[in-house]
Structures are given as structure tokens and as C-alpha cells.
Nucleic acid binder design. Structure first.
Lengths: 341, 341
DNA sequence: CTGTTAGCGCCTTCAA
DNA sequence: TTGAAGGCGCTAACAG
């Protein structure tokens, strides 16, 4: 044989030291080559890279981060993955993280603040560069930890309360209010509401409040409402609308807690031959793609989930440590005038 | 003042040493208390916990994992978050990870094998307990790294090829075949196909192959097909079906690459008053919730995304190191007989 | 039940 | 352009 072909260690025992020995330089030199940091002659660099290839060396970031006190990890805490909304926020986060080499560590709270607290504690233990967390509902302990951590904290989706550090999102109260205005301007007067589990979805509740506010200012109020105990779903929306209309005939507009539910409402109307918009207006929230593909496009409000994730990361990377005053970034929303309202 | 209230350090400089000093014991004792590992007297434990609270100590897992060579991190590599399918796999992963305290570190490849390679390299650097990765399409280097890492590797979704270590999923070829059989048995004979970007979705391609296989065995073949260049979406499905039917009248059954696309097809039929099932059969894939809420439930095949994620994690945690022979776990699928085929 | 002694693998600081 | 020494914060392996 030409040269003793060095088998890559199966046991993953290859460390900087091995690579250094093999290339006849010191550990720190190898380290410099690998991080592209500090001056290294082209010759040395090549020797080192060759050794890296030979050994199949994989750096150990646990050690690296410990030594340099800089982890390249970002904590992300979201309530759920069942709804397409949060994956879209995640997409935004990933898109902004992509170029940086920072990896997200994701936790799911299931809308439970105790779980959230544990999660935050455990994510903070990785000394992340920053923490992204959905919403403003945290235990005091969570808020404490987040403040004391010193790392940047972005609270996502919502801007209707004061942030720990920075909030990125939209006003859900405003969205609810504008929904009401939109429908009032189109002449609807007998309003129904179909929603899902409020205990867990504070933002749906805020939109509801905004809606009621708009109605009140016109001297109106909800005629009836139907709340589904559980997470939003198309089927839940469909059944809830049926229940609502059966119980209270004469309603001419129904606002849904989100598009999933609203699309269920549309399906009910299609199945029952209820003329959308003329017999009954339907209004959602989120602006999902599928709403626009319906036989009659859904009227709704588009939130900018992707942007929320992306913007949060961008802002946070601009300034790596918590400054004093909490800030708020409004990513806005827009009314999508479909054919159902 | 009653007692010198010790301010938690803002700079997060609290380490085990501080806590140890404050509680008058050694570091290792604090460590034992915090990890609930090793015998500690109730007295000592309480002193320590008190000091932890006072200082607001947050453990540093980078250091802990480095010392114990055990990271409590799990690498997860998925192609995309745009389709609800992968978030559901993630949900399954989280649900199985929940009790263990292991945190997932997530990477998105955008269906790009080069990006996947970088991602795997960088995730491996965290010395994860295991790696979960979607599909079988990897570069040689990726496969190498994964093998040499020594950690368990689960390839998800698909079982139509040989695994590096363990594969958890279903046969997409089989699903396509069974789709064909189902439609043939119901008397459909003129088949169309509507699909999305194949270059990126190998599994959709496998289902297509299975479908063609079923048709061929009955002496039939596809009458026409329409491929959308891009990711699947409801609107794409709707428009593609329109194009297909315009170009080739007389088709009596259309198989879609997935439910998103198929639902678009259903919307087209609703808008055009095409009688589903009688004039035209529509068949999807995935078994999304929304399909069941349609005015006429979508006929489709239910894959078990959540179970795939959960099962993979469970299996992997059973045996922490790669054994010799690759294994395969079939999570199966089932035909959902709706009202569109 | 508690403590001592050595690192884990890498990077910072300083010196050459 | 390179290297030596020391330490990041924690935990295994032994003592006692």
C-alpha cells in the first residue's frame, strides 16, 4: 500500500490535539485555521486542513463555546406547532439565522406558563445569544430569569403590553377593532362570533375585545357567540357556526377567531347553500394561503408571521446585549378584502 | 433594613463556586443537589437550594456537558417548515423528548443537500445525543459524518431505501400503488395526475411511481399530467387542475401529489360545479384535518407524521449508540374513504 | 454523606 | 506568524 490510510476514528475521539500532532503544529494554530481567525501562513493552513480531512475531525462546540463564552445558540420558545402560524414564525427566524451560523434550540410550551418557565430555565443554561419567546404571558420567575440573563429577549407576535426588552409583532386589539369597522362600513349589523379556546390564546382574546369595542362605539354589540373548548380547527369552526346559526337565526355577519375556524364556517355555508356575503358575512384572521384559494376568497386580516420572526432576529443581532428601555416594533397587518365579507 | 438583600448579579457571573461558598459546601455537593444525583443530606440540600435561589444561579450546560460528555441536545434536520407536515413531525419529536429534558436543535435544508451537509456538520459539533433527519437523500460526506459520529441516526418519513442506522416512516411507493388500486376498484379508468416540484420531493415521486405501477398492471396508464414548478399549495392545485381539464377533457379521476394540491382541486370543482366523485374523482395524500371538514370530505391516504417523530425518538433513546445493522420501522398508512373518490 | 483531584476540549492572553 | 500557559464551569472517580 502506498500510505498507511488512517481510519477515521469510529469513537469520535479526534480532538484538536490529534489534528495538531498530525500536522506538526500547535493546537492553537489549528484552532485559528478552523475559525479563520488570526494570521496563519498558507502553508500551515493547508497542512492543517489536510489533517482535518484525514482524521475526519469534528470540532466540539461545547468546549469551544465554554472557552470563548459565546455559544452560537438561540433559544426559541413557542406555544405550539399545531397551528401553521408558529412554524411560519420559525421560518422567519431560520431565514434570518441562516447566514449567521447560529442554531435555534426550540421549546414548546403547550400554552402552559409553568412549562414555559422550565423551558426558559433550561434554554438559558445553554448560554444562548438571545431568547425569542411568544407573547407576554410569563410567570414572574420567567421574567426575572430573562431580565437577569443579560441576553437580548424578543417577545413575539403581540405589542399590546410592555416588553421585557423588545417586542415584535402587531396590535391584535387593533386588528379586532378594524375587523369590526370593516364590517360595519359594509352595512352588517347583527354580529356573531365564533372562537376557540381563550384561556390559551390571549391574542384571540385581544382581537375579540377590539371587535366588541368597535361595535360598542356604533351602539351595537354581539348578538351571540359560540366558543369551542379546544384548539382551533376547521371542523370546529364548521360545527360552531352551525350551532350558532341554529340557536340564533338572523345573524348577518360572523367574525371567527382565526382563518382555520373561518374556513370551517365557509364550508358550512357551502354545504348549506348559504350565500356568503349576501346572506352571511364571514371574516377570519391570519391571511392563510388557502383562504385565497377558496371558491370565494376569504375576507380576513393578514398578519406577517414570517416577518415577525425575521425582524426579531435581525433586531436582536444588531445589539447583542440588553439595553435599558424596552422597545416595540410594529410589523403591522392588512385587511384582505375577499368575497365573504 | 432587615437583611442585606443580595442583588442577583446582572452580569450572570454566578457560578457553582459562588453557590458553594455561600452555602458553605463544596462545588461537587452543589452539583449533586442540582442534578439530584448522589446522596445528599436534607439539611445540606436545603442550604444549597436556598443559596441557589438567593443568587439566581443558572447552571451552565456547556460546561456540564463538556465535563460529562453528554449533551442533552438532539439534532433535527428537516427540509422545510412551509408544509404543515414537518411541523407535525416536530410535534411528535417534542412530545417524546418532553419527559427527557433533551432539547432539539433544528436545521432547515430547503431541500438542498449542500445545506444539509453543512447543517449536519454544525449540529454534530454540539455532540448531540442523536440525529434525526428527513429522507434518504444525502451527500456522501453527510452519510460519512453521520456514520462516524457514533450517535444514533434516524432517517424519517420514508422506508423505501436502506437506512444509515434506522429508518422510521412508511412506504410511499406502496401508498401510490394503493391509491391506484382504490380508484381502479371504483371503476375509474381515465387517470390524470397533478403534482408539484419533484426535484425536491422524492417521496411525491415515489408515490407517483407506485400509482403508475398500479395502472400499468391493469393495462392502463396516465392520460395526462400537470406538474407545477414550485412548492405545493392550494392555489397551485386549483390552477393545475383547471389547466389539466382544459387541455384533456374526459379524465374521470385525478390523483394529486398531496392534500394541499387536492384541496385546491376540490375548490376548482366547487367553483365550476363539477360533481365530485361522479364527474370527477379527486384523491390526495396526507390526511390533513381540513380535508375531513370539506363539504364533501376528501378521499386521501393518512400518513402518521406525529407518530413518525415520536417513534423515532423513542426507538433512538432505547439504545444510545449505533449498532451494526440498519433497521426499519414501518409506521404505516391508511386509506381515508372520503366523498371525492 | 462529603470533599479532593483531575481533567473535558477549546480559546484567551501573553510572549516569542 | 506561531506557541505556552492557564482557565472557562462543571463533573467523574476516588477518597475519607
Amino acid at each position: 500500500m502506498k500510505s498507511g490510510r488512517r481510519q477515521p476514528d469510529r469513537k469520535q475521539k479526534v480532538t484538536l490535539t490529534e489534528v495538531a500532532k498530525m500536522s506538526g503544529v500547535s493546537e492553537i494554530t489549528v484552532s485559528r485555521v478552523l475559525r479563520n481567525n488570526g494570521p496563519v501562513s498558507t502553508q500551515t493552513r493547508e497542512k492543517v486542513l489536510e489533517a482535518v480531512k484525514q482524521t475526519g475531525y469534528v470540532p466540539n462546540r461545547l468546549a469551544g463555546s465554554l472557552a470563548s463564552a459565546d455559544s452560537n445558540l438561540m433559544g426559541v420558545v413557542i406555544p405550539s406547532l399545531s397551528n401553521i402560524v408558529f412554524p411560519e414564525v420559525l421560518r422567519g427566524i431560520h431565514s434570518a439565522l441562516g447566514p449567521t451560523g447560529i442554531q435555534p434550540v426550540v421549546g414548546i410550551t403547550d400554552y402552559n406558563m409553568e412549562i414555559e418557565e422550565q423551558l426558559v430555565r433550561s434554554l438559558l443554561a445553554w448560554k444562548p445569544q438571545a431568547m425569542l419567546i411568544v407573547g407576554f404571558d410569563h410567570t414572574d420567575a420567567t421574567r426575572q430569569m430573562l431580565r437577569n440573563s443579560g441576553v437580548r429577549v424578543a417577545e413575539l407576535m403581540d405589542i399590546d403590553s410592555e416588553a421585557i426588552d423588545i417586542a415584535v409583532g402587531m396590535s391584535h386589539r387593533g386588528a379586532g377593532y378594524d375587523t369590526g369597522r370593516h364590517l360595519l362600513e359594509r352595512g352588517y349589523r347583527k354580529f356573531g362570533y365564533v372562537g376557540h379556546d381563550w384561556l390559551s390564546d390571549r391574542r384571540a382574546r385581544l382581537r375579540f375585545d377590539g371587535l366588541c369595542d368597535a361595535l360598542n362605539r356604533s351602539g351595537l354589540s354581539l348578538v351571540d357567540q359560540e366558543l369551542f373548548q379546544g384548539p382551533s380547527s376547521t371542523m370546529a369552526g364548521r360545527q360552531a357556526l352551525q350551532a350558532l346559526l341554529t340557536r340564533t337565526p338572523g345573524i348577518d355577519a360572523v367574525v371567527f377567531s382565526n382563518d382555520d375556524m373561518a374556513i370551517g364556517g365557509v364550508f358550512h355555508c357551502l354545504a348549506q347553500n348559504i350565500a356568503l356575503k349576501d346572506d352571511l358575512a364571514i371574516f377570519g384572521f391570519n391571511g392563510l394561503e388557502i383562504g385565497g384559494a377558496l371558491p370565494q376568497p376569504l375576507s380576513t386580516i393578514r398578519s406577517h408571521r414570517f416577518e415577525i420572526g425575521r425582524t426579531a432576529v435581525e433586531k436582536i443581532l444588531e445589539t447583542p446585549v440588553q439595553h435599558g428601555a424596552p422597545a416595540t416594533i410594529n410589523t403591522g397587518y392588512e385587511i384582505v378584502v375577499g368575497a365573504t365579507a
